[in-house]
Design a protein around this nucleic acid. Structure first.
Lengths: 200, 200
DNA sequence: CTGCGATGTAAGCGCGTGCTTACATAATTC
DNA sequence: GAATTATGTAAGCACGCGCTTACATCGCAG
């Protein structure tokens, strides 16, 4: 039974659905293979859509990449209070049976390093948002540098574990990994000259 | 005045020099642009060599990539005792006026995380070697997992700072960054079953 | 019903890619 | 010096890429 929302008009020709299908397929494929190794024909194929429509609706492969990144970038951020952000992101990265989150823009970014305008802008934006949230966790003067270091660690772990499948990290128990990281990060975020408050 | 080594034979036709020029150019370009966005014509052009020779001497673009990675990947590893390895890698990554080390394989790997070249094998080898060296720094049971986490951090920092130029990390003072990282890593590599100093 | 814009489709264009081939010339061997 | 091999060169082949074009079909307003 098809959904019946505020649009009683026919479903057979539905540009919104076509756009959405293209964005979904693009997010998946860019995450799996990176920008350069993903073809517009691949995307249209997985979306079940004629590839000419990709250009009609998005203009170019670049623009589609940017649109796909923008759509899903903020998910983890939105509903996480700052203190839990790091833990939640770690859990998401580590917990999944290695597939649940593969279409998150982080993986597309990791596999597309080298790409310009669109990707760069998005990476900056995404980075700024996560870094800002992380910076709120410390009151040190160079909070944002430290936050960048945390972000770098998260990206590096995702890269080594999920993209490159490095062992033993890839098979390590999520709780162990998270424990190590959180313990070290707690030290990282301490003010150099004060005692730290009770963790978490 | 050309160099005169153990090879008094002519310089005008010198396959060894041609190979070396190709490897140098390849290391630079792969580091700057990644695998997919580097052309065999680019490489031959920068090396000042006919591109057909690239295939005569290395067989394929994949194989050239692997050869270039293998040649320079072990430099830091070979002449650094384990205790100094982390510090040296950090210094090299952070110190350079952002260009000195761009042809190190690490950057080629970071910009080429797409997939499945022949270079996968050599990349894994190098990863193992660095991880092993780092694992020697702790006697914890899960030393290798912790070492992977350190390696992940190094990769993430290089990615965020040098590949993407994320601020404020990219402009942070090397000593500050190194200090933060070393302090946190010291905690990471401590044995989990020993008591921690007053913190927590 | 008619006309028209929105949506979907098939075919293909131009170009850059990795790689190969056919050949020229320098170096070496006899 | 002739024959042979090592090294360098120019041209181009086959293919996949991003993107475009020309057209069919649908939904709907009049």
């Amino acid at each position: 039974m098809p959904e019946h929302e505020a649009e009683p008009r026919s479903r057979r020709r539905d540009s919104a659905a076509t756009r959405a299908a293209l964005l979904d397929a693009a997010a998946e494929l860019f995450g799996e293979r990176g920008f350069d190794r993903t073809t517009v024909r691949d995307i249209a194929g997985r979306a079940g859509v004629n590839q000419a429509l990709l250009f009609r609706y998005f203009g170019s492969k670049d623009a589609l990449f940017a649109a796909a990144m923008a759509r899903r970038g903020r998910e983890l951020l939105d509903d996480s209070p700052a203190e839990q952000l790091l833990g939640r992101v770690l859990r998401q990265m580590l917990d999944n049976e290695s597939l649940k989150l593969i279409d998150h823009p982080m993986y597309a970014v990791l596999r597309s390093s080298g790409h310009d305008h669109a990707a760069t802008a998005i990476r900056q934006e995404l980075g700024e948002e996560y870094a800002s949230a992380l910076a709120a966790l410390t009151d040190a003067e160079d909070a944002r540098v430290r936050a960048d270091l945390v972000l770098a660690w998260l990206l590096g772990i995702a890269l080594l574990r999920s993209v490159h499948g490095k062992e033993p990290l890839a098979s390590a128990k999520p709780d162990d990994v998270a424990g190590h990281v959180l313990r070290a990060v707690r030290v990282l975020l301490e003010r150099a000259d004060t005692e730290l408050p009770p963790a978490e």
